[in-house]
Design a binder for these strands. Structure first.
Lengths: 225, 225
DNA sequence: CAAGGCCACTTTTCGCTGTCAACATTGTTT
DNA sequence: AAACAATGTTGACAGCGAAAAGTGGCCTTG
């Protein structure tokens, strides 16, 4: 896939290859170690070739984040099939956490302040916005079912759910050691989300049943801390 | 305060002046626009002088973040005086949001992934850890009073509260436009926190009374977006 | 089939950054 | 007075993002 058709002057697939390699570099090293020059060097083109495909370094980052959101949609799917609103929201939250742990640096790029300004990339905006609709749908069904308490309008409740999940996730990623939850991070995350979601439910009996100590979740991804 | 005693060779107060100017630069421009050389140039010392006081650029950032946490303690105070646990937690959350809006870039430095690695600065670690104790204290009193439901152990509930507040705040800072809460950000934040805290209370009647549309909070700080 | 244009890439160059090694200057201790 | 440690300075290196101008090759158009 790396080697191209025939001509050595025109690479032919540079944009995609830049994206792929950029993500690889992102994974081990974070945004700080991502340099256009290094990418170009490694691919074997001149150091300014990337500028044919991305106006900026920022534009590359925006493209990466956009693709991250598109992959992110996939994990939102199950919530549409689960009939129970509380479980649906919980599953969304757990998937959110899993995504963040498996694609930590991408997650940071998508939701963190590293990529700025971000309001000039319509695709990125649309992709990010799409995500909240998943939650909205779940909340709407929950309200219709009567499983969720009509505490406020849909948008507001959806925002609250998102904030809860997002807070649990980011705190876990960036400050796990500070707050002393070295192990069983997934367990703590699930407990927190259950507590918060329970408050939104009319009948919180199920959701507030905290999970047992042993968790079926995958071990934390190897990180370069 | 800038001009020193008499000698022009030894500055005399370089460390503090670096910190002050660094924060100023941080405020308008973010971490990306913070350069040791620019600081040195502006202060009027040579470009390597800062290295006498900070091993690294990272060390400067760590010092800034540490001081940020120390200021952050001040806002935690009111929660100790408020007898009602729900209100105490809510006030903490509101103060958290206010701090984040008034010192956006500092907040990002304190809680975001920009400063890395951060585990080699004991002072920073201690300062960050101190913050969670405020919440713990509030939760402990709430549990003792019977105002908070004993859903789990203190640490776990405190972590949950923190995550809720943190999620609301970061989402508001970084993605306000994405999720369509351009105005009345403080109102939305308060509503979300009330909903979440209500779920933790035995009698959520007061806390779930959502605030009215007009808010007494200060307008958003002028930001360079 | 040739002319011309356009696109993808290269070369060159600029100014900026963090950081290191060696040196100079100062206030303080012995 | 002499040695010392702390604090600045000079100069240099490698790396970066980015702009300007040139070049090779494919594609359209006459």
């Amino acid at each position: 896939m790396a080697s191209n058709t025939s001509s050595s002057y025109h690479h032919g697939n540079l944009r995609q290859e830049l994206m792929d390699l950029a993500e690889k570099h992102l994974i081990d090293g974070g945004v700080r170690d991502l340099s256009l020059r290094a990418l170009a060097r490694e691919i074997g083109v001149s150091q300014t070739a990337p500028y044919r495909h991305f106006r900026d370094k920022n534009a590359l980052l925006a493209a990466l984040a956009t693709e991250g959101f598109k992959r992110f949609f996939e994990i939102g799917r199950p919530s549409e099939e689960e009939p129970r609103a509380d479980k649906s929201l919980l599953y969304f939250g757990l998937a959110y956490v899993s995504f963040a742990r498996e694609h930590t640096e991408l997650f940071h790029l998508m939701f963190g302040p590293a990529l700025q300004p971000r309001n000039q990339y319509p695709e990125l905006f649309a992709a990010g916005r799409e995500a909240i609709y998943k939650v909205r749908a779940g909340v709407e069904r929950g309200l219709a079912n009567g499983e969720l308490r009509p505490l406020d309008n849909v948008a507001s409740i959806a925002h609250t759910v998102w904030a809860a999940v997002h807070g649990v996730t980011t705190l876990m990623l960036d400050h796990a050691d500070t707050y002393g939850y070295h192990r069983d991070l997934h367990l703590q995350a699930e407990k927190s989300m259950r507590m918060m979601i329970a408050g939104l439910c009319t009948d919180p009996s199920y959701i507030s049943n905290l999970p047992s100590e042993s968790t079926p979740y995958p071990p934390p991804a190897t990180e370069s801390r």
